[in-house]
Amino acid sequence: MDEHQWYLYPVLAARVARLAGGPFDVAVDMGTGPGLLTAYLARDLARRVHAVDINPAMHELARSTCTRMGVVDRVEFDRCDVHRLPYPDNHADLVVSYSCFHHWADPVTGLRECFRILRPGGMMVIWDTDGSRKSAVERIARVVRDPAHLRFVTEAFDESYAPAEVSGMVAEAHLPDPFLGPFSIDEEDVMAAIDDLANGASLPDPGEAGDGTAVAWELIVRKADPAPAQS
């Protein structure tokens, strides 16, 4: 994944900074995978990052990535399950997850857990493939030439949820005032991450099908600060 979409992670970190601000005390990367988003969060946005994954092989990759980027001392590599997180209520300022939601066995429980560990004023941001856009694979294949990468993309479409399904899960989880909409790379986020990009002018967009239409969705939920006590 990192060899094909390495450019995406600094852009996602820049997007989170634009949406949520920062710096933060604690962030959680739910499904760290190769650890690139974790590393950028630790470098730019959070004093402490929990890199969550149930696969120890992913933690080996993530630890190597964070070591290479000089942030390993700010990251905790937590082998745990999104359905039963070990963190207390109101633990994190930020929860993010990229291309992991479709792997959750019970997305409603996972959403509730992510929201539970958010502090008041915190934000969760989740990105994943739009499972209703399976027809886009043919167009994407014209751009993606590497067979392994194309197989990864095809599997993501096959396994992912349509936004309408996600909307139902969000409602069932009783998340307050969610924003759920199409996701594609924003030029403002690219420019914010330009120093980390080898050639920002020619970036492909993993959120588009090659015809300008979005093939990924974005969920944003904020946990409100408690109402002030009545005097």
Rank of each mutant, 00 (worst) to 15 (best):
F101T: 01
A92K: 00
D89W: 06
R133G: 11
H102G: 04
C80V: 05
R112C: 04
A164C: 07
M124A: 14
Y87P: 04
R139D: 14
V125S: 12
V108I: 14
H83Q: 08
L118T: 03
W104S: 03
Y87I: 06
I117N: 06
R79S: 04
R145K: 15
F152R: 09
T129W: 00
V137S: 06
G168T: 13
L111D: 05
V96C: 09
S135T: 15
H102K: 05
W127N: 10
G131N: 03
P120F: 08
A156H: 11
L94T: 01
D78R: 05
A136S: 15
D130Y: 07
L111N: 02
E159F: 03
S167M: 14
T154N: 09
M123V: 14
V143G: 07
P88M: 06
W104K: 00
V137T: 14
D89E: 14
D78Y: 01
R116C: 08
S97I: 09
L85S: 00
V143C: 03
V125Y: 07
S167Y: 12
H83S: 02
A141V: 13
V96S: 06
V143L: 13
F152W: 10
G121P: 07
G121N: 09
R119G: 11
V166C: 01
D81G: 00
S167H: 14
I117R: 02
P86W: 12
A164M: 09
R116I: 04
P163R: 11
R145A: 14
A164Y: 08
